[in-house]
Write a protein that binds this DNA or RNA. Sequence first.
DNA 1: TTGCCAAGTCTTATATACTGGACTAGACTC
DNA 2: GAGTCTAGTCCAGTATATAAGACTTGGCAA
Lengths: 266, 266
Amino acid sequence: MDGRVAKTRVARGPRERGIDRVLKLFSFLQANGGPARLAELPQALAAPKSTIYDLVNILVESGLLELRGKDGQVYFGKLMHLYGASYLRANDIMARGREMVDGLAKETGETSEFCTRLRGKQVIVHARPGSRPLRISSEIGSQIPIPWTASGRLMLSHMSLAEIDAILDPEDRRMPNGAPVDLDAFVAECHACRDRPIARTIGTINSFTQCLAAPIINHSGSVEATICFVLPIDIPEEKKNDLEARLIEASKTLSLAGLKDPSEAG
Amino acid sequence: MDGRVAKTRVARGPRERGIDRVLKLFSFLQANGGPARLAELPQALAAPKSTIYDLVNILVESGLLELRGKDGQVYFGKLMHLYGASYLRANDIMARGREMVDGLAKETGETSEFCTRLRGKQVIVHARPGSRPLRISSEIGSQIPIPWTASGRLMLSHMSLAEIDAILDPEDRRMPNGAPVDLDAFVAECHACRDRPIARTIGTINSFTQCLAAPIINHSGSVEATICFVLPIDIPEEKKNDLEARLIEASKTLSLAGLKDPSEAG
DNA sequence: TTGCCAAGTCTTATATACTGGACTAGACTC
DNA sequence: GAGTCTAGTCCAGTATATAAGACTTGGCAA
């Protein structure tokens, strides 16, 4: 009955493609949060030594990775940073989003975050902790399955069931408590967020914080990112309303920026 | 007589490796300075259509590239930015260098740049134009052959002739006027910069600006980057001395930061 | 309509990238 | 000095990724 299968790139035989190994390598380094020993990579990636040494050599020569210390630590290199910076320059929604988050956190004293989506995961691109004694901060770059968050629903609100189905890998289909995601219900929730100026947390991640999120819409009309406040659960209603208003304001400013995109301006 | 050959990765037959094609693709996008049409890539990279379409698909799915507009524009993706940001987090010399440049430019009103090295090229990682009516600014991310600059010499000062020979690709061995670089003489110039707190332009790029550069030394003692002022040629001596002092100060601050590196503190 | 071009997809063959595994070099122990 | 372990290099065979090129699709013009 259910022909849907999450299509992840998957090894189909004894050999795996070079690029796939490279992508996994990058992903591992990112998850690792810092340099890894070259010698441990083959095991960590379940890849042959000879392949990894070969690929790492190529990547280091190119500058995408860097090898340092005499103990063979590997991590991202300068070239990766250059390319990443080029992305930022070409997508000023991102750059402006970061600034906006800093501004909001400073003005309001509340933790503010800028999130985007990568396939079926939400990524915290930038965060600025608030001035409360209890700081609730998430690691920058950390990825969590889209269904866990309110802002995730915003980011899927413009997508069809089929599209959503296609981007959710198996591991994105379980809630924090392990329960499987009911796709149809989830998609309905996403669509319910469509054109909403704000979304509130569903309290899925923990019970003592709430989250306010506003969509940032790019020039093609999809929700490309969200800007959020992470708040304690017991914040006064009045303050919360003020924060919502600010967030909506911010989201409008950033979304409008997209209209300046030269490729769209006739 | 001259057994030295600059070793660039080069196609050795009818087929080329996937990674190599990917690296060239990235490099092309960077040089292009913005999104490129997918359909023009095969020609631009001298690669078969089927290969490029295949690779771009994989890279887009992974998030390293992004495909947008209905006219098939390709450029770097969010994942590239994430990885690049991870590089920055792990190499705070870079992050601090950027801030320092902003500070210097603001305080002094002069154009300030943060440069690093990628193989045989100098890359402008960050720049802040000064407040002079005539702004001399270089494109961020632009790459120029190391022998063209004073700060390039600083960045090679700790390397042996053999090492320098190995990183200079053929195109890095010509001066702006087309004259070939005399390797031995050039290496001697580099070594002359060793342990110098500052280097002054050699006036190789144009005749109406000069450049002051100071080395930034990483935890393993090599010059990893430079911080520079780009000045008009006729700046008063007194002002110039002040700027040199500031630059040396800045370079010391940043270089010391390297000592905090946990892997070295032991 | 028909013809044309450009953009993108699909299929098949073969040159070679990936793999396994043997090997070397060095560090550390006993 | 012999034994052991870990890190890294090297080599040859084969599963398969790359490449060539035919094919489909869509937009535009005559």
